[in-house]
Amino acid sequence: MCLFIPAIIRGLSLPVSFSLHSELLPTLITYLEAIREALAKALNDDPRVYIYGQDVGFFGGAFKATKGLSQRFPGRVIDSPISEDAMVGSAIGASIQGMRPIIEMQFADFSTVGFNQIVNQAATMFWRTGVACPITIRLPCGGTSGSGPFHSQSLEGIYSQYPGLVVLTPATVEDAYSMLLAAVECDDPVIFCEHKYLYYHLKADGLPNEALPIGKARITRAGRDATVVTYSAMLHECLAAAEELAGEGWEIEVIDLRSVKPLDTDTVLASVARTGRVLAVGEAWPWGGVTAEVLARIASEGFNLLDAPPMRLNAKDTPVPFHPNLWGTHRPTAKTIADALRSLLRL
């Protein structure tokens, strides 16, 4: 499988929310560094943890998420053959035997080669046998400019469809760190969707000392006129859209789901009860998936709370395109989200 060169995304123009820390300060930590720090902490604190994936050893991984870890933790950060099925299968076996494997898929897209082991073996193990399967599978997911159809996919919806899997989609540096640690501690198989677009650009002042539990959403921006429910990199597009609409006098509430399975329906419904209008935004494809699930729950459990039909905005129903001109239009952006919100507010 070909290697994608992550440096290509560095030249992108970014939503307003990213530019807060555009002056690189030495104390700032990126989303990717937070993941690396969480991996190091997990390896350091728990002898059951090991990392297994393609190029993760001496090389430090395609995105450098494991840079330096094989030297710091000899024998516990292991290069695998290009065998996604066997990578996941072996992690399942090791977890039965008391280990806490962390599998790095080079790209989320390649996890489909290991799909059978994930959805049929890992996801069913506890239900069938009563024996837990605590594995963490890291999926570098989502689109970046120039990555094309096979290095850009968002697969949280398809994994969430399967019983027994926990699916996490951190949108912030702090969540990338604390939720990865929570994933490793979790006794069930976790699909950890880390967004490649956020790896280098998203920065925070430091690592958090405390965290929301898995399954709790966060109201990132409070508002009263409409609710936007989103997750992962789309959070930042939605925040930029909310900022734009604030200039027009609208107060948009933005909810970061953080975890798409389990899904925090209570927080979503409570917000919709306040605003009466909702837009669900996801980078994944439009047929089914997380945004459809969010709207289905609102429609069935909170129909009477709505002042307007619930809306959703997803990527187009085509493979993810290669060229930046096409890619920038394929997925929702701050502009298309703002437009959708204007429609929703007019209804």
Partner: peptide, 24 residues
């Protein structure tokens, strides 16, 4: 090990148990 129906899928699970044995 409780086999799933997908043939060949149990072999890497055995591998993982053997890797864990080595770790431990």
């Amino acid at each position: 090990l409780p086999m799933i129906s997908h043939l060949g899928a149990m072999v890497s699970v055995v591998n993982g148990i053997l890797m864990a044995n080595r770790f431990q």
